[in-house]
Design a protein around this nucleic acid. Sequence first.
DNA 1: GGTCGCTCTTGCCTTATGGCAAGTAATTGG
DNA 2: CCAATTACTTGCCATAAGGCAAGAGCGACC
Lengths: 190, 190
Amino acid sequence: MKELILSQVYQHPLISADDLRRIIDAHHPRSFKKGEVIYKRDKVLNEYLVLESGLIRSYTHNYNGDEITTDFFGQYEVVIEVLSLFQRTPLQEDLQALTDGCGWTIPYDIFQELFHTIPGFSEWGRLWMTNKLFQFKQKSIDIITQSAKERYLDILTNKPQIIRHAPLKQIASFLGITDTSLSRIRKDIG
Amino acid sequence: MKELILSQVYQHPLISADDLRRIIDAHHPRSFKKGEVIYKRDKVLNEYLVLESGLIRSYTHNYNGDEITTDFFGQYEVVIEVLSLFQRTPLQEDLQALTDGCGWTIPYDIFQELFHTIPGFSEWGRLWMTNKLFQFKQKSIDIITQSAKERYLDILTNKPQIIRHAPLKQIASFLGITDTSLSRIRKDIG
DNA sequence: GGTCGCTCTTGCCTTATGGCAAGTAATTGG
DNA sequence: CCAATTACTTGCCATAAGGCAAGAGCGACC
């Protein structure tokens, strides 16, 4: 399973079979239970996690203490908060499991070494960052151009596992609306 | 001026004086006039631009053809669309000058070479991406947690040069509201 | 098996922002 | 310097989403 998942995730034309072997070997297993906070706010992140199974969300709090879910992570996704890992600053969010699950972690210092010795790996990393950057840029455009209902339908078709496992309140805050409004949207859709 | 600007932008503990020299030498001058579209949609970006003076915005269009301003760039900022540059795909936005100005460009292939031969440079690049990623993530949080007025006041204090040079309509679409609403917000502030 | 707590729904009313249209002010180009 | 275009403002009304509170459903735990 380890090889299967990780060779999928680290697929890149410039990463050779040998490189991939080194990368895969650097990963350690990690499993978690529903509700567990995998990485805690205010600590500096020292690894990241590639998800094999389960669902994870990241969340922060607004000025009056309400939780805001900022992201969801599913199978094959990289669970990370780049600001903390790469700038060595405390996490600004909690990362919490929504279901039981497991995955593979890689420590920061090993990652660094591979990043600087395997050209294909730094390319891969940059590409990953590029996609993540685009994703958030797109999200901020979607929030201002689409209605809450349209954004909900988007998730419903593209990320159905989120709808299945995350409570309404978390989905609502991710969409940028209240749980009340999301409930009405669901009613409206039927 | 070239040294001053670029050594400021590429400041990083792992970039030596020699490295910095190589990086600076790779940059070419570029100036532009108000209103000029510096990088055009549908073309693949082959360089990026470090701004010495002037103001630039990026914009795209929503489904019914209205312009949406997605970002503003000022002095010392890197004018780029990462998705196009690093994935070699066509630009999805236009990059347009709001004022006369000038800066320094570096071609993609030279950038690539430096990125893979100067460890401090790839660190710098990753750090830059990290910050940009955070910025967009923060923007999407701000849109859902703050009122339009608060977001406007934010720009007013943190990026006053935008308010001074960009027309109301562009600022409004950047904030995610209509020009009508922004006009009322301005009236309200007094 | 009952009580507690959490999740979700719903009704009533409020508020922020939008849509349209008319009108004024400012800029641009010949 | 004038005409044309674009930028901005304002009034009137519409709409999406929020605030609050009551209540229903459901699971968790002793």
